[in-house]
Design a protein around this nucleic acid. Structure first.
Lengths: 407, 407
DNA sequence: CAATAAATAAATAAATGTGATTTATCTATT
DNA sequence: AATAGATAAATCACATTTATTTATTTATTG
């Protein structure tokens, strides 16, 4: 069977997928169990059918049937039989990298990125588009052109297996007009454009939209090394800092999609005045400092591998940002007992490491009576987390259990 | 069939109830659909089979079978046929108040409460036990005695239908030793006693344990008028303030059970110093003020219907508490986009109303850029929310969809 | 006006289809 | 011989589909 229409897709069409408030039926059950198998394989890389049976509590036969079907749909591939143990050799099954492809589009204030990833999460293609400020028309043109190239580059079979496009974009992009140095009103187009719908018209597959930092959080969940588990809070430090929430190993985007709006978290600055996290932990704050000092700050955006020697300014920014992040983590922990806090961003690795260490330090200084503090950790996905997070949206929607639908 | 063993109970024993990480099978599906039907009836009071079918998306026949079974188990009763419309008259089905009973035990620093509620949530019996400070032995004796009385009072059929006991108790009760005016070390017994296990030994039904404010939140969800829906944050203002979280109409207690530890939320006091919410919004703070002024504050605990004339002191406390609550709500909203914030407590109705109004006012003064503020509302359950919340635990566990198991 | 037919809606019985489980068997290895 | 993985066949459980029964209102007719 070529394409994805015969596989999980059809199952979803049936009466009642386990959406909220609806009943379950057999299709829902099979669909759930298939997704469960795929999720386990994603997490563990490669498992024999019996192992899956043990982990899920399903009978060996059921697992056998499900996995043979997935294999027939080319979503799984069998590995070399493992000999050397008593009994029949076990055949490790793993995700077929070519089983499906996903597109992720990140729209930022200085550039857009479009990523193509395979079923195992490997980046197959990544292209960038820079600008002074983004407009919807420009973005649509960029995507359309890239899609055309892609359709030519990939063979027909692979193109048919592109399962969706996920857009990772900040909420209310237009309100950055001034910060991005755009002429007033230049970005008003965003206010009235439904970019998701506009792109969906031009794509033969479903298109999803999610806040950029929330999407990045999803990338940590699906493509992390290892994939993040349980309940955690996530920060993506970009031009502006944003956040995401994962509960029970699943992205939580909230009823309005605005969960994890950690940039708006009130935090005290060293003087005790309450400010929003976005005003202390964003890279744009560092940029402003550098510019005020008459330095060239464009390297912050163009060479994320190494910012060079920024000395005292960088150190002060890291400390301030960490101070704010620590407070945000503390407050968030009073709401949800997160197991860990993950920090990633458009940052050189050394800066990210320093930021995490400093945040952990500040956090340990705060009054956490009655709380169990989460472990503060670096993200494992890195700079491109937002684009990859976009790509994770169609993946989660089609192939993982209980994803929150992203519009 | 007498007792509950024949009904949903057995279904639960089957292989895979939809617990996390496990597969689903038919029993799980039937169990889920049964719970769904019961949840809908709880929310809507009384529904015809066809209405349930429409709401769930299940076929009329499936609903028919499920509801006949529930009726046979005496969990549902049929109402008078509704005539006056075209077609066969519809028979409204509703929860049988006598279908099951639940016990809720609240353990507080000055008194314990034990409540018996029926399947519809009506309080059938409520008894109180006051003390200078609680000990595990004392509590066990109180419960044991009350259970004996209950077994005598209820007839055999009803006693067999008691589905469980839920304990609502603050975390780390022992750490209040000083605040409760107990001799040092007197409450150390709690540190080493597994009260849930101790009571479970003495009960023929399952026993659950939950943080008291989280349990109260559960009461708002199950017994509220109307039952609260969606995502909300909940505060119970007692001797100490505590909180709870509900997501998607379900109690969320987190991986360690410490979600909604809102008492530990850092909030700025008017001077700008960061303090924990518990230090500004607890009734004990008001008590301290009154005692320092040489006034008798016992009325705060003994006459929750009317605190009398406390004048300026009360007003100042309400304002301070509201200020803290507003900040806590703001910070929480940056984590989860809550639709509402519900405030209840051991408070006279007028004080609760004033606290809510003042909190809403303070909240509107804060910088909420990038957030959608939740509506601030009074609880609908009232003072006994904690005991009722305890009783809601076995109810949710047995009869509602997707409850987080409480230990 | 009463009797009757048509339409509608709820409830349910029987047949059907889907999916998980149980049981038995085969294969490969120590 | 013992053990463990894989799977086919038979069985069981549950939801769906289709058709039927029952109860009622509305419209029509004598």
């Amino acid at each position: 069977m070529s394409g994805l229409d015969g596989g999980l897709a059809r199952q979803n069409d049936g009466a009642a997928a386990p959406r909220r408030g609806l009943g379950t039926n057999q299709s829902g059950m099979r669909d759930y169990n298939q997704r469960l198998v795929l999720s386990l394989l994603r997490r563990h890389g490669s498992l024999a059918k019996t192992e899956i049976a043990r982990m899920t509590g399903l009978s060996a036969q059921t697992v056998s049937v499900i996995m043979r079907e997935l294999e027939a749909d080319a979503l799984l591939v069998r590995g070399d039989p493992q000999r050397g143990k008593v009994g029949q050799p076990s055949i490790p099954m793993s995700l077929n990298p070519e089983g499906a492809f996903f597109l992720g589009l990140k729209i930022g204030r200085r550039s857009s990125e479009m990523a193509l990833i395979d079923f195992r999460g490997a980046i197959r293609r990544m292209c960038q588009h820079s600008y002074a400020y983004p407009t919807p028309e420009d973005t649509i043109a960029f995507v359309t052109k890239d899609l055309a190239t892609l359709e030519k580059t990939l063979d027909r079979r692979r193109w048919a297996r592109v399962a969706g496009l996920g857009i990772a974009m900040p909420f209310e992009l237009w309100s950055w007009a001034d910060a991005a140095g755009a002429p007033p009103g230049a970005m008003d187009g965003w206010r009235h454009t439904d970019i998701r719908a506009a792109l969906a018209e031009r794509c033969p597959f479903p298109v999803y939209l999610q806040n950029d930092a929330t999407a990045a959080c999803g990338a940590e969940l699906v493509f992390g090394h290892p994939p993040a588990q349980g309940d955690f809070i996530y920060f993506y430090v970009g031009a502006f800092v944003g956040g995401g929430i994962a509960l029970g190993g699943r992205l939580f985007s909230g009823s309005t999609g605005n969960a994890g709006a950690l940039g708006s978290m009130p935090v005290p600055d060293p003087a005790g005045t309450m400010r929003q996290l976005i005003d202390v932990a964003s890279i744009s704050v560092l940029e402003k400092t550098l510019v005020a000092r008459g330095l060239d700050a464009t390297g912050l955006w163009t060479s994320p591998d190494d910012w060079g020697e920024l000395g005292e300014d960088l150190e002060r920014w890291v400390d301030g940002a960490a101070h704010g992040l620590a407070h945000a983590i503390l407050a968030a922990t009073a709401v949800i007992d997160f197991q860990s806090a993950i920090i990633d961003g458009w940052l050189p690795l050394a800066v990210r490491a320093a930021l995490v260490a400093r945040t952990a330090h500040h956090l340990s200084q705060l009054d956490s009576e009655g709380l169990t503090l989460p472990a503060v950790r670096e993200g494992t996905v890195g700079r491109h987390a937002r684009a990859l997070g976009g790509a994770s949206l169609p993946l989660a929607e089609r192939f993982l259990v209980g994803a929150q639908s992203a519009l």
